[in-house]
Design a protein around this nucleic acid. Structure first.
Lengths: 192, 192
DNA sequence: ACCTGAACACCGTTCAAGT
DNA sequence: ACCTGAACACCGTTCAAGT
């Protein structure tokens, strides 16, 4: 989709990039920065902002899409270069870092998708596919029980979105992941 | 606090109750109903609304407090009347029903508390204490491993807030709870 | 003591005018 | 083709005037 667009004028392209850059930084901090503040920091007028993103939701979804892609890439990379169980744990740690560093973005996404009644989150398919790589490697290695879907797993670690970025979230995250891993290992061939 | 207030004029009291009633219904549906719509449906002017709740956050927190109290009561009741493991599971089902029936409220709460940088959610202490009753009963019965705190447990089932109220959430919730229970049982004295 | 609704501020979104 | 900023609509919050 967005890769097959007509080439833009270079100044227009730079405007779009600057908006996204500023939006990522601002939304990570807080879900309710005014769009006018983002436009101003990016050095563009309101009109230019709305030319690129027709509304708040479109902006949030695009920022989210980029971030999710990185998480997916990271999962694929870990699945390729680490032992299965180590890969899974490291990716969970990545996710916890992401969820706490960009808590505002998660809120913004929830608001944006809730408003329209449920615009599918872009890239979630990509992310689930990458998680599946991690899970499959573990299934094959016998480190976790079969029959656990990427969706199951993602739901089980959803607690990361609840962690308080300003607090001492690391030990809470660690305890969550330990509990989930225990649940995944229970009944695995290479276990018990 | 709010129980030791000066008695209100009865019409004022009824106004407050009506506002809360309408707010619960509206916020359950969607987190971003205008406060003016709530005031209108409750049949009061803006001023009366703001006399009772100085801002959006105050309203959301109060509605949330009432709902959380019910969830806590339900946990205590189940802990008293059911076998430990059965009680825990039924309460999780309650929670899933709550989270899907009142999804908007959960969003509203997140927005309200995020806005002020982190107003403590009222009643969460109450809720965690009630969860502890459920967990302790299970620890004593040997149905789950010791060393799991109410906080751990609540984080592990946080996926309920991710369930789509318009979709087929029951099976997803069931799979989540099964996975969490497996994690809790692993290493329990009465197991393995 | 409590109520109402008009008034004000702020943010999302649009659009006329410019290059 | 793209940009700017003023203008408009809507919602949160306040407040003067009423009972």
């Amino acid at each position: 989709m967005s890769t097959s667009e007509v080439p833009q004028r270079s100044d227009a392209q730079r405007n779009r990039e600057r908006i996204l850059e500023v939006a990522l930084a601002e939304l990570s901090r807080s879900a309710d920065v005014p769009l006018s503040a983002i436009a101003k920091k990016a050095g563009v007028g309101q009109g230019t902002f709305y030319r690129n993103f027709p509304n708040r939701e479109a902006l949030v979804l695009e920022v989210h899409r980029q971030e999710v892609r990185q998480l997916a890439d990271s999962a694929a990379e870990l699945a390729r270069t680490r032992e299965p169980d180590r890969a899974l744990r490291e990716w969970m740690d990545d996710l916890a870092r992401y969820a706490t560093a960009k808590a505002g973005l998660a809120d913004a996404l929830r608001q944006a998708t809730a408003a329209t009644g449920g615009a599918a989150k872009p890239g979630s398919h990509l992310l689930l596919a990458a998680i599946e790589l991690l899970l499959n490697a573990n299934h094959e290695a016998g480190t976790i029980r079969p029959g656990v879907t990427a969706d199951d797993f993602f739901l089980a670690i959803a607690g990361v979105w609840q962690l308080d970025p300003r607090g001492d979230w690391q030990p809470r995250a660690a305890r969550l992941f330990d509990l989930v891993m225990r649940g995944l290992r229970a009944g695995a061939p290479g276990h018990e």
